[in-house]
Simulated scan of single mutants.
Amino acid sequence: MKCIGIEFPELGEARLFDLPDPPQPGPTEIVTRTLFSGVTNGTERHSLMADFGSRFPARAGYQHVSVIEEVGRRVDQFSTGETVFLGNHGGHRGWHRVDLAAANPRERLCLRLPPEMEHEYCALFGIAGVGFRHSRRIRVAAPMRVWVAGLGLIGQSVAQASRALGAHVTVTDIDPRRLQIAAQLDAHCVIDIGDDSAVESLTEGGPYDRIVDACGAPDLFDFIYEHKLLALYGAIGALAGRQPTVFHQTMLHALRASIESSSHFTLEDLGILRHFCQLGTVRIAPLVTHRVPVDEAPAIYATMRDDPAELLGVIFDWQT
Rank of each mutant, 00 (worst) to 15 (best):
L109T: 13
P308M: 11
G91N: 05
I30D: 07
Q180E: 15
V146Q: 10
G237Q: 04
T170Y: 04
Q278T: 07
A231C: 06
L202Q: 01
F8V: 11
N41T: 09
T40Q: 13
T28E: 15
I154C: 03
L202N: 02
R291V: 15
A309E: 14
D317P: 03
A240V: 00
Q156A: 05
H168F: 12
G87N: 10
G206Q: 00
V294E: 08
A297R: 03
S262A: 13
V71I: 05
V148L: 00
I4P: 04
A240E: 00
W318M: 03
R106Y: 14
T266N: 06
I68G: 02
S201C: 14
R97V: 02
G126Q: 04
E13Q: 14
V67I: 04
K2A: 11
L113D: 06
V190T: 13
I174F: 08
L270M: 12
H119S: 15
G194W: 01
S135K: 01
D269A: 02
E296C: 01
T172Y: 09
A14L: 11
A182I: 04
V65L: 07
G241P: 03
M117W: 11
V75H: 02
D307M: 11
H275L: 08
R97H: 13
A128E: 09
P57K: 01
S258A: 14
F316E: 12
L267G: 11
L48C: 07
P9H: 10
R133Y: 07
W318Y: 06
P25A: 07
Q63L: 08
G38W: 02
E226D: 13
R177I: 08
G194Y: 00
L48W: 06
N104A: 08
Q243P: 10
I300M: 09
E260M: 14
H96N: 14
E82L: 12
T34V: 10
Y121V: 10
L267S: 15
V171E: 06
I259D: 00
A299R: 12
L165K: 05
V39S: 06
V288Y: 13
A58C: 15
E204A: 12
P286Y: 04
A123I: 02
L111H: 07
D307R: 13
A103I: 07
L273F: 07
D76N: 11
D18T: 11
G205N: 14
I236M: 09
R256K: 13
A217K: 02
H188A: 09
A238Y: 01
A167G: 05
L311T: 05
G129T: 04
A302T: 14
G216N: 00
G166R: 03
